[in-house]
Design a protein around this nucleic acid. Structure first.
Lengths: 347, 347
DNA sequence: CGCGCCATTTAAAACGTTTGCAATTTCGCT
DNA sequence: AGCGAAATTGCAAACGTTTTAAATGGCGCG
């Protein structure tokens, strides 16, 4: 029946009350007589009244939205976590009735400009920023604007305070090293990317720190680097590692996609995993369970993290705490079949 | 510097013009002198002016948002397409500067109630509805409300007109049958789900139609059904198929996740793929490329479809066409190594 | 009976924008 | 210089809500 939306004015007219009273009754103000409150609530429910978001936002200055810039990459590249992340964020927000706004950046439009638009148009009360870069203009902007946000990931230098949640990649990579070392490995490979993302450093440093901690001079680490989205270069870098005169017996990859490529290329080179080569990844993407022989990796539980990020952001928006909320989540080892004892004979 | 947001009033004051003129100048109205328009545009750019969404929405009745209900399932179940879908949708919307609103349904809250809230709060100008059920209350509601929407998927009975885009599962399943038939297969298995989703019927009917078209009475089809998210039941159903006294030589799965389970269980039963059993899936999820020996499947190109859905929805919102926009996208066969000639000896 | 106090309700402004209509300015022409 | 039309600009209302400040009514008490 109702092709139109009910408004407060209509509801008030129907009830013979003023708009003010109806508004207050629905908000549950004590000052309105209980009987009236009940009567109004009942009528509102009856009429299927839903307050208009725009009007409410305009007057209150709060939109009830949380924003995020949608990472759009090349034609066939989809952020592999996006689904999980968005689901988790939704879970985190739903308790407060906040919705999520996803703003896409058009081709050639910087992510910053989209972020600015989201912030300055008043679309959102706070934003989530993911994939922190070494020098991150988004963070600089948000700080400067003093706009509520929570970062998924961290900057390297702690020169300004902000709210963040990060997975403890450093710890995981240390754990990977220790495990492999105890399995007899001494010659390691690290496959990483060349983009200036901070998680790259955090993880690599965690590995280096674990090596240093062990204090065994016979440990050797070779690093292969390639651009994140250049499959050719990636394969080339990996094969340099694989076909060196002295080949590592264990390769740790910055994340699963790289590890899967390592396994593929290893297979192509006639190396059996884990007999000839141990491989460990990070993230635990769906394919890792299926790729033979099953990739040992760390589960970053993106969904749970995103949920927590959502909750943190709601706190930040509501309470504006002046000391930063921070949270380091330790990823859990998912032990599958891609790692094992170091090969004993020569390679 | 600007911790506050610039408003039209401030801009007007600064320029010595009325709010009206500034508003019109920025909107590019011809009636405002060109020189003024330029001056205003320049000043607005300088000040980093971004119009307030809420105010604009309130007066224009258009929010510039497109809504979608975020499917939240059990703890570890994430809609495997969500990332791709959302990315595609974002791509489709970005040209018109529309953003995407994702509203999550809290535990125990029906998807319909969330949808109602999105629609009636005026948050969105149109919505996208995915995973159409046989009897879909969301579609019924939207029609009744006469609210712009585009469905990803179709109802079975065409009793009311609406805008949709669907992947032609019927065609794909027919194609799969034809291919397998030509490889000598006569005994088929279909693994499907018990939930009342329409795509289930469309695909199964496509398969049945292809069988009928062939007119070979020796063709046999066994169907195994299990609830979508009940892994145990799924495995059981598949194994009933696999361990029947007369086992199918080719199994077609409703979608890749099922096909992957079929391959796992086949491996567990000592069957070699594709020597002993051919398996074909649908969707082409990431894991399908990695799961040995590589799953033959159909690529639904979710991202491209979602993008088109976004574009369709913008058309619907803008033009309110009275004849329905419909689009059937033919999925493409991704031929990997999980299918082959029917085994010749007895099984 | 009148005063004041409390409980309850309401009028009106405000949020920032768009837009119908009216006012003002400019300019050509006589 | 003066007129009228065209070009340009501005006033004010409207969108639906929240909120401040004020009004109204009821009632006890002196």
């Amino acid at each position: 029946m109702p092709a139109r939306v009910t408004t407060l004015k209509e509801l008030a007219a129907q009830l013979g009350l003023s708009i003010t009273t109806v508004s207050r009754a629905l908000a549950g103000h004590e000052q309105i007589a209980l009987k009236t409150r009940q009567r109004v609530t009942e009528a509102a429910h009856q009429a299927g009244y839903v307050p208009n978001t725009a009007a409410r936002t305009l007057v209150s200055g709060r939109s009830g939205f949380v924003g995020m810039v949608l990472p759009i990459r090349g034609p066939n590249l989809v952020d592999s976590f996006l689904g999980e992340f968005v689901t988790g964020l939704g879970e985190g927000l739903v308790s407060h009735g906040s919705d999520l706004i996803l703003a896409a950046a058009a081709q050639g439009q910087s992510e910053l400009s989209v972020l600015r638009h989201v912030v300055e148009s008043g679309r959102a009360d706070g934003v989530v920023v993911t994939r922190i870069a070494e020098v991150d203009e988004r963070l600089a902007y948000l700080r400067h604007r003093n706009f509520p946000f929570v970062a998924h990931g961290r900057l390297l230098d702690g020169d300004f305070a902000y709210h963040w949640l990060d997975t403890d990649g450093a710890h995981a990579f240390g754990e990977a090293f220790d495990m492999l070392y105890d399995l007899g490995h001494r010659h390691f490979g690290l496959v990483t990317i060349s983009e200036p993302m901070t998680f790259r450093h955090l993880r690599q440093d965690g590995l280096a720190a674990a090596i240093a901690r062990r204090g065994d001079p016979s440990v050797r680490l070779d690093v292969a680097t390639a651009p994140r989205f250049d499959r050719g270069a990636r394969i080339q870098a990996i094969n340099r590692l694989l076909h060196a005169t002295e080949r590592p017996t264990a390769i740790v990859a910055l994340f699963d996609e790289l590890a899967l490529t390592v396994m593929e290329e290893a297979g192509r080179a006639g190396l059996a995993i884990p007999r000839d080569l141990s491989v460990i990844g990070f993230d635990n993407i769906a394919a890792s369970a299926y790729a033979p022989p099953g990739l040992t990796t760390f589960d970053a539980s993106i969904r749970r993290c995103a949920r927590e990020i959502g909750e943190m952001l709601l706190t930040v928006i509501g309470d504006r705490p002046d000391s930063p909320l921070t949270r380091l989540v330790r990823p859990t080892l998912v032990s599958r079949a891609s790692h094992g004892p170091a090969p004993t004979g020569r390679n």
